[in-house]
Design a protein around this nucleic acid. Structure first.
Lengths: 92, 92
DNA sequence: ATAAGATATCATCGGCGGATGATACGTGGT
DNA sequence: ACCACGTATCATCCGCCGATGATATCTTAT
Protein backbone atom coordinates (compact mmCIF):
# COMPACT_ATOMS: atom_id res chain seq x y z
CA UNK A 1 0.00 0.00 0.00
CA UNK A 2 2.76 2.39 0.91
CA UNK A 3 4.58 1.65 -2.32
CA UNK A 4 1.45 2.33 -4.32
CA UNK A 5 0.96 5.59 -2.46
CA UNK A 6 4.54 6.59 -3.08
CA UNK A 7 4.08 5.97 -6.77
CA UNK A 8 1.41 8.67 -6.76
CA UNK A 9 3.57 11.30 -5.14
CA UNK A 10 5.34 12.64 -8.19
CA UNK A 11 3.98 14.90 -10.87
CA UNK A 12 5.55 13.09 -13.80
CA UNK A 13 4.15 9.75 -12.69
CA UNK A 14 0.71 11.24 -12.19
CA UNK A 15 0.85 12.63 -15.71
CA UNK A 16 1.90 9.26 -17.04
CA UNK A 17 -0.97 7.55 -15.26
CA UNK A 18 -3.45 10.10 -16.49
CA UNK A 19 -2.20 9.70 -20.03
CA UNK A 20 -2.51 5.92 -19.80
CA UNK A 21 -6.05 6.29 -18.48
CA UNK A 22 -6.95 7.25 -22.03
CA UNK A 23 -5.38 4.14 -23.48
CA UNK A 24 -2.02 2.55 -24.07
CA UNK A 25 0.92 4.56 -25.31
CA UNK A 26 4.48 4.36 -26.46
CA UNK A 27 7.39 5.68 -24.46
CA UNK A 28 8.05 8.31 -27.11
CA UNK A 29 4.45 9.39 -27.01
CA UNK A 30 4.67 9.69 -23.25
CA UNK A 31 7.86 11.68 -23.55
CA UNK A 32 6.07 14.15 -25.81
CA UNK A 33 3.06 14.17 -23.54
CA UNK A 34 4.94 14.89 -20.34
CA UNK A 35 7.50 17.17 -21.93
CA UNK A 36 10.33 15.75 -19.87
CA UNK A 37 13.38 13.74 -20.87
CA UNK A 38 13.29 10.19 -22.14
CA UNK A 39 15.43 8.74 -19.35
CA UNK A 40 13.21 10.43 -16.84
CA UNK A 41 10.09 8.95 -18.39
CA UNK A 42 11.66 5.51 -18.57
CA UNK A 43 12.69 5.77 -14.96
CA UNK A 44 9.23 6.65 -13.79
CA UNK A 45 7.65 4.00 -15.96
CA UNK A 46 10.01 1.51 -14.38
CA UNK A 47 8.84 2.61 -10.95
CA UNK A 48 5.19 2.32 -11.94
CA UNK A 49 5.79 -1.10 -13.41
CA UNK A 50 7.76 -2.38 -10.44
CA UNK A 51 4.86 -1.36 -8.24
CA UNK A 52 2.40 -3.06 -10.55
CA UNK A 53 0.48 -0.03 -11.74
CA UNK A 54 1.38 -0.34 -15.40
CA UNK A 55 2.34 -3.16 -17.74
CA UNK A 56 4.60 -3.04 -20.77
CA UNK A 57 4.80 -4.99 -23.96
CA UNK A 58 7.36 -4.79 -26.70
CA UNK A 59 6.01 -4.05 -30.15
CA UNK A 60 8.73 -3.84 -32.76
CA UNK A 61 11.35 -1.45 -31.54
CA UNK A 62 8.94 0.47 -29.45
CA UNK A 63 7.40 -0.48 -26.10
CA UNK A 64 3.76 0.05 -25.36
CA UNK A 65 2.62 0.77 -21.82
CA UNK A 66 -0.84 0.43 -20.36
CA UNK A 67 -2.52 0.47 -16.98
CA UNK A 68 -2.02 -2.88 -15.30
CA UNK A 69 -5.70 -3.34 -14.42
CA UNK A 70 -9.08 -1.61 -14.32
CA UNK A 71 -8.62 -1.09 -10.59
CA UNK A 72 -5.68 1.15 -11.34
CA UNK A 73 -7.97 3.12 -13.62
CA UNK A 74 -10.42 3.46 -10.76
CA UNK A 75 -7.65 4.63 -8.50
CA UNK A 76 -6.56 7.33 -10.91
CA UNK A 77 -10.13 8.43 -11.47
CA UNK A 78 -10.77 8.58 -7.74
CA UNK A 79 -7.67 10.71 -7.39
CA UNK A 80 -8.82 13.03 -10.15
CA UNK A 81 -12.27 13.27 -8.59
CA UNK A 82 -10.87 14.35 -5.23
CA UNK A 83 -8.47 16.77 -6.86
CA UNK A 84 -11.38 18.11 -8.88
CA UNK A 85 -13.60 19.27 -6.06
CA UNK A 86 -10.51 20.37 -4.24
CA UNK A 87 -10.20 23.03 -6.90
CA UNK A 88 -13.90 23.77 -6.99
CA UNK A 89 -13.75 24.32 -3.25
CA UNK A 90 -10.98 26.79 -3.90
CA UNK A 91 -8.54 24.78 -1.87
CA UNK A 92 -5.88 25.06 -4.51
CA UNK B 1 -3.69 16.62 -7.92
CA UNK B 2 -0.02 16.47 -7.12
CA UNK B 3 -0.66 17.61 -3.58
CA UNK B 4 -3.27 14.93 -3.11
CA UNK B 5 -0.86 12.32 -4.45
CA UNK B 6 1.87 13.55 -2.15
CA UNK B 7 -0.47 13.19 0.79
CA UNK B 8 -0.69 9.48 0.01
CA UNK B 9 3.04 8.91 -0.05
CA UNK B 10 3.67 8.41 3.64
CA UNK B 11 2.85 5.39 5.74
CA UNK B 12 1.56 7.31 8.74
CA UNK B 13 -0.84 9.31 6.65
CA UNK B 14 -2.08 6.19 4.90
CA UNK B 15 -2.73 4.63 8.27
CA UNK B 16 -4.59 7.71 9.39
CA UNK B 17 -6.75 7.67 6.28
CA UNK B 18 -7.49 4.00 6.68
CA UNK B 19 -8.45 4.52 10.28
CA UNK B 20 -10.76 7.37 9.34
CA UNK B 21 -12.35 5.21 6.68
CA UNK B 22 -13.98 3.38 9.55
CA UNK B 23 -15.37 6.57 11.03
CA UNK B 24 -14.30 9.71 12.80
CA UNK B 25 -11.68 9.64 15.51
CA UNK B 26 -9.89 11.71 18.08
CA UNK B 27 -6.25 12.66 17.80
CA UNK B 28 -5.44 10.56 20.84
CA UNK B 29 -7.23 7.60 19.33
CA UNK B 30 -5.23 8.07 16.16
CA UNK B 31 -2.03 8.29 18.16
CA UNK B 32 -2.83 4.94 19.74
CA UNK B 33 -3.85 3.51 16.40
CA UNK B 34 -0.73 4.51 14.53
CA UNK B 35 1.63 3.93 17.41
CA UNK B 36 3.65 7.04 16.65
CA UNK B 37 4.13 10.25 18.58
CA UNK B 38 1.42 12.85 19.09
CA UNK B 39 3.28 15.69 17.35
CA UNK B 40 3.87 13.42 14.41
CA UNK B 41 0.20 12.55 14.16
CA UNK B 42 -0.81 16.19 14.48
CA UNK B 43 1.64 17.12 11.77
CA UNK B 44 0.31 14.57 9.36
CA UNK B 45 -3.27 15.44 10.16
CA UNK B 46 -2.42 19.05 9.43
CA UNK B 47 -1.05 18.01 6.06
CA UNK B 48 -4.14 15.96 5.27
CA UNK B 49 -6.38 18.80 6.30
CA UNK B 50 -4.48 21.44 4.35
CA UNK B 51 -4.87 19.26 1.29
CA UNK B 52 -8.55 18.81 1.96
CA UNK B 53 -8.62 15.09 2.64
CA UNK B 54 -9.82 15.32 6.22
CA UNK B 55 -11.85 17.77 8.26
CA UNK B 56 -11.58 18.55 11.95
CA UNK B 57 -14.00 19.73 14.55
CA UNK B 58 -13.35 20.67 18.13
CA UNK B 59 -15.37 18.78 20.70
CA UNK B 60 -14.56 19.80 24.24
CA UNK B 61 -10.84 19.66 24.69
CA UNK B 62 -10.43 16.99 22.09
CA UNK B 63 -10.56 17.34 18.31
CA UNK B 64 -12.39 14.90 16.11
CA UNK B 65 -11.18 14.18 12.60
CA UNK B 66 -13.08 12.64 9.72
CA UNK B 67 -12.69 12.15 6.00
CA UNK B 68 -13.57 15.34 4.20
CA UNK B 69 -15.93 13.69 1.73
CA UNK B 70 -17.17 10.34 0.43
CA UNK B 71 -14.89 10.76 -2.58
CA UNK B 72 -11.93 10.59 -0.27
CA UNK B 73 -13.34 7.34 1.03
CA UNK B 74 -13.52 6.06 -2.52
CA UNK B 75 -9.95 7.10 -3.11
CA UNK B 76 -8.71 5.22 -0.06
CA UNK B 77 -10.73 2.17 -0.99
CA UNK B 78 -9.40 2.25 -4.54
CA UNK B 79 -5.91 2.43 -3.14
CA UNK B 80 -6.55 -0.51 -0.86
CA UNK B 81 -8.03 -2.48 -3.74
CA UNK B 82 -4.97 -1.99 -5.90
CA UNK B 83 -2.64 -2.77 -3.03
CA UNK B 84 -4.72 -5.84 -2.32
CA UNK B 85 -4.27 -7.63 -5.63
CA UNK B 86 -0.74 -6.41 -5.68
CA UNK B 87 -0.17 -8.76 -2.79
CA UNK B 88 -2.28 -11.53 -4.25
CA UNK B 89 -0.20 -11.30 -7.40
CA UNK B 90 2.85 -11.76 -5.24
CA UNK B 91 4.25 -8.41 -6.24
CA UNK B 92 5.07 -7.54 -2.68
C1' DA C 1 27.97 -6.23 -40.12
C1' DT C 2 27.00 -1.75 -39.23
C1' DA C 3 24.32 2.08 -38.27
C1' DA C 4 20.35 4.47 -36.50
C1' DG C 5 16.35 4.54 -33.73
C1' DA C 6 13.90 3.42 -29.31
C1' DT C 7 14.23 2.35 -24.68
C1' DA C 8 16.59 1.13 -20.36
C1' DT C 9 20.11 1.63 -16.87
C1' DC C 10 23.42 3.92 -14.07
C1' DA C 11 25.94 7.50 -11.10
C1' DT C 12 25.86 11.87 -9.22
C1' DC C 13 23.94 15.70 -7.09
C1' DG C 14 20.66 18.68 -4.86
C1' DG C 15 16.42 19.55 -2.46
C1' DC C 16 12.46 18.26 0.00
C1' DG C 17 9.85 15.81 3.40
C1' DG C 18 9.45 13.10 7.69
C1' DA C 19 10.87 12.05 12.55
C1' DT C 20 12.02 13.90 16.82
C1' DG C 21 12.04 16.86 20.91
C1' DA C 22 10.83 21.09 22.92
C1' DT C 23 7.38 24.21 23.53
C1' DA C 24 3.14 26.96 22.82
C1' DC C 25 -1.89 27.17 22.73
C1' DG C 26 -6.44 26.26 24.24
C1' DT C 27 -9.94 24.19 27.21
C1' DG C 28 -12.15 22.45 31.17
C1' DG C 29 -11.89 21.39 36.09
C1' DT C 30 -11.01 22.79 40.98
C1' DA D 1 -6.32 31.90 39.07
C1' DC D 2 -4.06 27.78 38.43
C1' DC D 3 -3.30 23.27 36.83
C1' DA D 4 -3.68 19.27 33.92
C1' DC D 5 -4.92 17.43 29.71
C1' DG D 6 -5.22 17.38 24.68
C1' DT D 7 -3.57 19.28 20.59
C1' DA D 8 -0.79 22.26 17.60
C1' DT D 9 3.45 24.45 16.15
C1' DC D 10 8.28 25.01 15.54
C1' DA D 11 13.37 24.01 14.59
C1' DT D 12 16.77 20.77 13.54
C1' DC D 13 18.70 16.88 11.47
C1' DC D 14 18.86 13.16 8.29
C1' DG D 15 17.63 10.10 4.63
C1' DC D 16 15.56 9.43 0.37
C1' DC D 17 13.79 10.57 -4.12
C1' DG D 18 13.76 12.93 -8.55
C1' DA D 19 16.35 15.32 -12.36
C1' DT D 20 20.12 15.18 -15.31
C1' DG D 21 23.66 13.41 -18.45
C1' DA D 22 26.20 9.58 -20.08
C1' DT D 23 25.95 5.18 -21.67
C1' DA D 24 24.23 0.42 -22.42
C1' DT D 25 20.82 -2.71 -24.67
C1' DC D 26 17.83 -4.22 -28.08
C1' DT D 27 15.66 -3.97 -32.65
C1' DT D 28 15.13 -3.15 -37.48
C1' DA D 29 16.90 -1.57 -41.83
C1' DT D 30 20.48 -1.39 -45.43
Amino acid sequence: MLEVGRALSCENRLNLLMALTEGEATVSELVDYTGTSQPNVSNHLAVLRSVGLVASERSGRTVRYELASPEVGNLVKALMAVAEDRELTGRT
